[in-house]
Design a protein around this nucleic acid. Sequence first.
DNA 1: CCTTGACCTGAACCCGGGTTCAAGTGGCAG
DNA 2: CTGCCACTTGAACCCGGGTTCAGGTCAAGG
Lengths: 143, 143
Amino acid sequence: MVPPFLTIGEVAARLGIATSALRYYERRGLVVADTRRSGQRRYSEATVRRLVFVQMLQDAGLSLDEIEGVLAAGDNAEWKGIARRRLAQLDADIARLTHARELLDLALHCRFDHPLDECRVMNAEIDQRLDMAGSALGVAGGV
Amino acid sequence: MVPPFLTIGEVAARLGIATSALRYYERRGLVVADTRRSGQRRYSEATVRRLVFVQMLQDAGLSLDEIEGVLAAGDNAEWKGIARRRLAQLDADIARLTHARELLDLALHCRFDHPLDECRVMNAEIDQRLDMAGSALGVAGGV
DNA sequence: CCTTGACCTGAACCCGGGTTCAAGTGGCAG
DNA sequence: CTGCCACTTGAACCCGGGTTCAGGTCAAGG
């Protein structure tokens, strides 16, 4: 049976995280050890789950402040608000990374033998971006 | 024709970037103004393009150090190496974000009325992650 | 008894990518 | 001449998410 309490080192090992990070979370008020035995933190199974949850949200790109908000949310409208905002941001991020990925991929298979600044694909993209921001650069000589 | 030189403020406005960032790039040796007029930086069109290129690579998730590497690459094997590494990383990032997105989305449409820690989907994911890292936690004795 | 190892604390430090600040210069308008 | 504005510099600071360090406590084992 062995009361299911883990030391900070065990938790750290299990979650693949540094003990210093666990203490840091506690400082932040995010996740506090359930109890102490002669001064040392002991974590319950439930708290370990909570930590995994924190990791998940972190993976989803939430800041520790946001995660605090989610954990503290009494109202479920509260975490859903945070989640929705983050969902929109995720979509934007994914789109941006996907575009970057395509670009990089094209550049790699462009032609095998010219420097990057002569790459047609890259230059097209640069032109695009310049046009987006309102170009006076190639348009007219004078201000 | 009016030599097509822009002041730092003009470049900043055009690229949607702070002047301080441009000076910072110069400090880093990334992109240096072409010339000076009574001490003030002047940027050529070519240099502005270079800056846009820097922004693109930054969007693709390269660090300024890596970007320096790409810009300095004499050998095209050099930038291709960096690009390939980053491409792999992008794939991983995209996959991770996509997974997080799905999860968050499911959680949002889960049931309309329970706190997040009672969400079936979330708990399934937490279990998964615990199992991944070798679980002794739920195996014996548990609650 | 004494060492060893894991743990404790607060305070300081690290990193990347800038931003901010104080103090000074240059040039043009009124 | 006097503003005024955009520009210059080096140095200091900010942020998030931790890590590192010095110095101390505790329990077990040889």
